[in-house]
Amino acid sequence: MNANSKSPKLLLSLALLAGTASTGVAVAQTQEPPQADVSATFSAPAEPAAAPAEGPEVKGIISARSGDRMKVTAADGTSTIVAVNDDTKISASKGLFGLGRNKLASASLVNGLPVTVKTLQSGGDLLASKITLQNKDLKTASMIHNGTAQRFEEQTAATEALRGRMGEIDQYNVKSTTNVNFDTGKAVLSAQAKQDLCATAATAEGMNNALLLVVGYTDSTGGEELNQELSEKRAGRVVNYLQQACGWKPYRMLTPTGMAEADPLADNSTPEGKAQNRRVAVNVLVSKGLDGL
């Protein structure tokens, strides 16, 4: 049969089938595969935390503890609050020239203990990175912590005094008072004052159960707030010298105080009277219940 004799309907059907097939191939060839979703697998690297800056070195006596914070009072009477955490290294020097160290727990950081603290600046706070103290003060720290020392193991009243739990002042007999004087507006100890303080400490050491109470005063120069601060600074300077230079133990020291221009010894209207009133009084006390033991 001749090809030209094919039915027109058959030719049309074949043409339509061929067009449909070619169109499907073209669509399959041009369609792109779906892109992978990478949004969930990419994250920007975290910024590294800034290292704490080195803070000042703090030297003084621990004057208060509350949780993980302690107050260190320096020789000039200024106080610094320092935080202590698990990363703080605490050690005591031992041996000749401080060679070798004992590692300590934070529980050894008791009130009255002289320390040197290296700090880090953390925001607006200071964090202790390293705390060191002298090995000779470990015995003192143990006495404070346990509330026992020398002859006081069996004496409840003296043990309470060693812990600094002072009762009313009228529970004590004043055995002696030593006054050391200061220049106007100053809290600097003179050579004579230093000599008098160590002599007082030596005398008190010879008394059974003696404690020291330190009270600072000013003359009438200056305002009330300034004089209060100055009297406290003078008292703090005397306490530090008695403990650090004269060897007086912290557990035998009652809480010092500043009285500004109260209780003057002399007339504040004269230069001579003012000179007498710029003083710190070191009172040697013995509990009335233990006096004479």
Score class of each variant (00 low, 15 high):
L10R: 12
S13Y: 08
L17I: 07
T20L: 10
A21T: 09
T23W: 15
V27W: 14
Q31T: 12
Q31W: 07
V38T: 02
F42Y: 07
A44L: 13
P48H: 06
A50L: 05
P52Y: 00
G55D: 01
K59A: 12
R65C: 03
R69N: 05
V72G: 06
A75M: 13
D76G: 08
G77L: 14
G77H: 12
T78K: 11
S79F: 03
T80S: 10
D86P: 02
D86H: 09
I90G: 05
A92Q: 10
G95C: 06
L99C: 05
L99P: 05
L99T: 12
G100V: 06
R101H: 09
N102I: 00
K103F: 00
L104I: 00
L104P: 01
A105E: 09
A107I: 03
V115E: 09
T116L: 08
T119V: 02
T119L: 01
T119Q: 01
Q121R: 04
G123V: 09
G123M: 04
L126V: 01
L127Q: 02
L127G: 00
S129P: 03
K130T: 04
K136I: 15
L138F: 12
S142V: 08
H145N: 06
G147I: 02
T148R: 14
E153H: 15
L162M: 09
M166Q: 09
M166T: 09
I169N: 08
Y172S: 11
T184W: 00
S190M: 13
Q192F: 01
Q192S: 12
G206L: 10
L211Y: 15
L211M: 15
G223N: 07
G223A: 03
R237K: 04
V239T: 07
L242C: 08
Q243K: 02
A245V: 13
K249F: 07
K249D: 09
P250I: 08
T255N: 02
T255L: 05
G258I: 08
M259E: 15
A260S: 11
D263N: 11
P264A: 06
N268M: 12
R279V: 13
N283K: 13
V284H: 14
V286L: 10
S287N: 14
K288P: 07
K288E: 12
G289K: 10
L290P: 07
